[in-house]
């Protein structure tokens, strides 16, 4: 019952991560979605810093700082810039309606918790609970990617999925080697830049960011 306060903090941050993942699933506006993504980055940075404090691994502080700089400031700024340049202010159009998506989301969470259970039995008590939550947020981001029509929201979902994976890495295995983390951070940044360029190309070709049009690429 009496687990240390810092572990409770990690648990709370994990729960917040899941909460934001659900909020993203329910959100209709792109700008608000980017705000939520930045919030998720902040939670992630906080949990990484807390983990660094518990485990006493200094390189986790570096990765927390990197997360803060990249996911709270750089990427949201980049995304805001892209949607301003593309002049998109529409509401997100989900393929299935939002309450149904949320119900599927609950199902996914239960699935993820069940999936993580046998692994957690073997893990140390601190990682026991967070692994399920990390899996759940990855699955939720995946669900968001599937159910959204427009390219920008799909990319945000992709980035959110990376957040979930990163959380799994830091909380379950106490972080990857610093080189790997630096590499991933750079990958995400470069990936987002390339996606940004893709947006312009998609719009130039199809006059829309609806990836539905891409199904008609066949020559006739």
């Amino acid at each position: 019952m009496a687990i240390p306060f810092s572990w409770q903090l990690i648990n709370l941050l994990a729960a917040l991560l899941l909460l934001i993942a659900f909020a993203m699933l329910a959100q209709r506006r792109v700008t608000a979605l980017i705000g939520l993504y930045a919030g998720q980055g902040l939670v992630l940075a906080a949990s990484t810093a807390a983990m660094a404090r518990i485990s006493g691994l200094p390189h986790l502080y570096v990765s927390a700082a990197l997360t803060l700089a990249l996911k709270v400031f750089a990427l949201p700024w980049l995304l805001h810039r892209v949607i301003r340049r593309l002049e998109i202010r529409w509401e997100v159009e989900p393929l299935i309606n939002i309450p149904a998506t949320m119900l599927v989301g609950i199902g996914l969470v239960i699935f993820a918790f069940n999936l993580a259970e046998p692994i957690s039995q073997m893990a140390s008590p601190i990682t026991r609970s967070t692994l399920g939550i990390a899996t759940a947020s990855v699955l939720l981001a995946f669900l968001m990617m599937i159910t959204r029509r427009k390219a920008v929201t799909q990319v945000i979902a992709f980035l959110a999925m990376e957040n979930g994976l990163f959380f799994a890495a830091t909380s379950a295995t106490r972080g990857m080697p610093l080189v790997v983390e630096l590499g991933i951070a750079l990958d995400v940044l470069v990936g987002a830049l390339i996606f940004g360029i893709f947006f312009f190309h998609i719009r130039e070709t199809f006059d829309s960011l609806d990836i539905h049009h891409m199904e008609k690429l066949k020559e006739h």
Binding site: I3, N11, I106, I110, F113, R128, S129, G132, I133
Partner: peptide, 8 residues
């Protein structure tokens, strides 16, 4: 659900 998973 979380209450049961986190066991706190």
């Amino acid at each position: 659900l979380l209450h049961f998973v986190l066991q706190v």
